[in-house]
């Protein structure tokens, strides 16, 4: 009985210690800090329920935050990429992936905005987005939801809904199509 009580008290001490150390270290972590109160998985409208195609007149009745984002497919993204406006910063590509995949390969010129480290990136992304006509957000493609989360955050940060585009096929489609890529850290 005494041994059981002692084991349980040891477990409690270890759990409390884990909690204290975990919270303390998290508080001083820079980029990898987890915001305890942030909803990292907000409800998003992924466009599957009547998603909108880009370049069509967009004036749906519902408020901007409830509208599905404008979806782009590979051909449209390539067209935008090859447009002169891209070179002038009027079309901005936003990569919603983490450091490792971003540095391994991205759409040339894409700005990183890892959704889970939003606080770290949002300032610079908003600077790029401020003067842009089109902000094209992508992540891995497939089941990846991070780009939609970033679209939501951009909308929250007052980037006009009409300027935000969601590249559904994402990196997988881009890489598979043999388009040019950029690697390494962003200069």
């Amino acid at each position: 009985m005494k041994a059981i009580a002692s084991t349980i008290s040891q477990m409690i001490i270890l759990c409390v210690l884990g909690l204290v150390v975990g919270l303390s270290v998290n508080a001083v972590r820079g980029k990898d800090h987890i915001n305890l109160w942030r909803d990292y998985t907000p409800k998003i409208n992924d466009g599957n329920t009547g998603g909108t195609e880009a370049d069509e007149p967009q004036q749906p009745a519902e408020p901007a935050k409830e509208r599905p984002f404008q979806i782009l497919v590979l051909d449209q993204v390539i067209e935008i990429f090859e447009d002169d406006k891209t070179a002038y910063g009027l079309h901005v590509f936003v990569d919603a992936r983490a450091d490792t995949p971003y540095q391994a390969g991205r759409i040339p010129g894409a700005v990183q905005c890892d959704y889970y480290r939003m606080d770290f990136y949002v300032g610079s992304v908003l600077e790029y987005a401020a003067g842009a006509e089109k902000v094209i957000v992508y992540c891995n493609g497939g089941e990846c939801e991070d780009s939609l989360y970033v679209c939501g955050e951009l909308l929250n940060a007052e980037v006009p809904w009409g300027n935000i585009y969601f590249f559904k096929g994402g990196w997988e489609d881009w890489e598979r199509s043999g388009q040019p890529i950029e690697t390494g850290p962003k200069e």
Binding site: L17, G18, L19, L23, I34, L36, W37, Y40, T41
Partner: peptide
């Protein structure tokens, strides 16, 4: 969200301490 975030913050440290 605190349940999920707290789990992610505490569990690895609890494992390491144990």
């Amino acid at each position: 969200p605190i349940f999920l975030t707290l789990t992610a913050v505490v569990v690895p440290w609890l494992e390491l301490l144990c």
